[in-house]
C-alpha cells in the first residue's frame, strides 16, 4: 500500500520525461521546515523567521539546482565491444554537460526502475562535469535476449545538492544493438568431430596450406599472414591466401525454429558456441546454414566470427502474433 502511494506521488510529480521524488531525508527536512515555520509564526521570533527563510530557500534552491543538473546533462551509452546475451558486456557511458559556462555536479545514469525487464546496465556516477565537457565512464550492460535490442531505458538522475530530492530525466533509447547469442561451454562431440579435428598444431598447418593468391589485408586477418615483400612493393598491406581445404571446413546447420522458443534458443546458443570455438582455431573455415539455406558462406578469421554471430543473433522466425519488423 505504501509502495502504491509512493508511486502515485511520483506519478503526480512526473511530467515531460522528468520526475521528482522526495527521499526520507527530504521528508524529514520538510517536516523540520514546517515545524520551524510554525514556531516562527507562532512566537514571532525574528531569528526563527530567518532560519525558516533559509530552509525554504534551501528547498527551492535544491529543486532548481537539481533540475538544472539533469537538464544540462545528456548521456548516451555506447557499447564498447561485442555483446553476448546474458553476459555482462562493456559499455561506455558518455556524459556531456551542455552548458558552456557552468559545471554539473553529481549526476548518475541509471536504469529506469519503472521498466520491468531483465536487461540491466550498471549505474554510473559523475561527481563533476566541467562546463561544456564530456566525461566517459566505463560500465557494464547485461542484455538477456539475443537479437536487436536497444539499451535498457535509462534516466539521468541527481540527488544534488543534498540528497533531499531525486530528480530524474528519461533518456532517449538510442540505436538498437546487435546482441549475440549466449555462449555456452562447447559440447564435447562437436569439438571432437573427426572432420574438424586438426591435431595438436593447427596453426602451423593452417599456414602450410596450398598457396592461392595475394589479396588486400582485411580487418581481422592474422598478422602473420602478411606478405611483407609484397607490402613493400605495393605500398599497401597484403596477405597470402591459401586454398581452402575441404576437409577443414565446418558447416553449421541450424534447423528452422521460432525466436524465443527455449529449445531453439538453446540450439542457437550451442551453434554460436561451437562457431566461436572453431573459429578460435585459425585454420577452420566455418559457415552457417539455416533451414537448409546458406546464411553465411564459409570463411575464417575474426570478421567471419562476427558475421556468423551476427547472423545467429537475428536468426529464427518471429513468434506468432508478433507484428512485422518494420512498419
Amino acid at each position: 500500500m505504501a509502495r502504491r502511494k509512493r508511486s502515485l506521488l511520483r506519478r503526480a510529480l512526473t511530467a515531460r520525461g522528468r520526475s521528482l521524488e522526495i527521499t526520507r531525508a527530504g521528508w524529514l527536512f520538510i517536516l523540520l521546515t514546517l515545524a520551524v515555520g510554525f514556531a516562527a509564526i507562532n512566537s514571532g521570533a525574528n531569528l526563527l523567521h530567518a532560519i525558516f527563510g533559509a530552509q525554504m530557500a534551501l528547498i527551492v534552491g535544491s529543486g532548481i539546482l537539481s533540475e538544472s543538473m539533469v537538464r544540462r546533462t545528456v548521456a548516451r551509452r555506447v557499447a564498447a565491444g561485442e555483446i553476448y546475451a546474458g553476459q555482462a558486456a562493456a559499455v561506455r557511458v558518455e556524459l556531456t554537460n551542455l552548458d558552456p559556462r557552468v559545471d554539473v555536479f553529481s549526476v548518475s545514469v541509471e536504469d529506469d526502475d519503472r521498466s520491468a525487464t531483465d536487461d540491466a546496465c550498471a549505474p554510473v556516477f559523475a561527481v563533476r562535469i566541467g562546463a561544456g565537457r564530456t566525461v566517459e565512464i566505463p560500465a557494464t550492460v547485461t542484455l538477456s535476449q539475443r537479437g536487436r535490442h536497444a539499451m535498457p531505458a535509462a534516466v539521468v538522475a541527481t540527488r544534488f545538492p543534498f540528497g533531499l530530492f531525486v530528480k530524474r530525466r528519461e533518456l532517449p533509447r538510442g540505436a538498437p544493438l546487435l546482441v549475440y547469442p549466449r555462449l555456452v561451454p562447447a559440447p564435447a562431440p562437436m569439438a571432437d568431430d573427426p572432420r574438424t579435428d586438426l591435431g595438436d598444431a593447427p596453426r602451423r598447418r593452417a599456414r602450410a596450406g596450398e598457396f592461392f593468391a595475394l589479396r588486400e589485408y582485411r580487418d581481422g586477418d592474422d598478422l602473420r599472414r602478411i606478405h611483407w615483400p609484397a607490402v613493400a612493393r605495393l605500398g599497401r598491406p597484403v596477405v597470402r591466401e591459401y586454398e581452402a581445404d575441404g576437409d577443414r571446413q565446418m558447416m553449421l546447420e541450424l534447423r528452422r525454429g521460432t525466436t524465443g522458443d527455449p529449445s531453439f534458443e538453446a540450439e542457437v546458443e550451442q551453434c554460436a558456441s561451437v562457431a566461436v570455438a572453431a573459429l578460435g582455431r585459425d585454420a577452420l573455415a566455418v559457415g552457417l546454414r539455416y533451414a537448409g539455406e546458406l546464411l553465411v558462406t564459409p570463411g575464417s578469421g575474426d570478421e567471419q566470427r562476427r558475421r556468423v554471430l551476427a547472423a545467429l543473433a537475428v536468426v529464427g522466425d518471429p513468434p506468432k502474433g508478433a507484428t512485422a519488423v518494420d512498419a
Partner: peptide
C-alpha cells in the same frame, strides 16, 4: 548554496509579516 539560503533568510526575515499567534 549557503548564499541562496542566506538570501532566503534575509528576504523572509524582512518581508514575512510578524503576527505572533502565540498558541
Amino acid at each position: 548554496v549557503a548564499a541562496i539560503a542566506a538570501i532566503g533568510a534575509i528576504v523572509t526575515f524582512v518581508a514575512f509579516p510578524r503576527w505572533g499567534v502565540g498558541a
